[in-house]
Amino acid sequence: MSEEKNNGRMSIIVRTIASSVFPFIVIFSFYIIMHGHLTPGGGFQGGSVAASAIVMLIAAYGYRKVDERVKENSLACIESIGAIIFVAVAFVGLFMAASFMYNFLVGSPFFGEIPHGGNTGILNSGGILPILNIAVGLKVMAGLSAVVAVMALSAGEKK
């Protein structure tokens, strides 16, 4: 098959469009994650959008290119870092304030200002919500893209 000849990658049109669209999708996913407490979206949604961008690169460039560039151990490390940040923030709420996963940053001058009449554009508000959004976003992005990458590697090696 010609698929075996060119290492499972698609034609040059698909590769060019995928590599030129990729930064915009990643920036949009970062926007969804960072504005998770202001506009619709959040950690899971932005992470899934970023993972779909990585899946698009895997589909366009083939599994061997992915095998050269990124290892699944690093993706698993990123996912574990997200989980550790999540649980660490929750335990800081236990030790510094009242209870587990208490929103201890609300009211502090750095992260917790509460504007009157709705919050329209202040990013560093909402207490621990942006930190947890970033943690869950890292976790979902690394996890879903690791699943698809490992499955593509396994299917490519088996063939």
């Binding site: 979206g41 949604q45 899934s48 959008v49 993972a51 779909s52 899946v55 299917a155 088996k158």
Partner: peptide, 26 residues
């Protein structure tokens, strides 16, 4: 429900399709 819409479009229309296609290829 735009939150659910973004999650559905990201996971259901992209990730699940990619996983199924990889499984069919295998």
């Amino acid at each position: 429900a735009p939150d659910v819409a973004i999650a559905e479009a990201g996971v259901g229309a992209c990730i699940t399709t990619a996983i199924f296609i990889v499984a069919i290829k295998a």
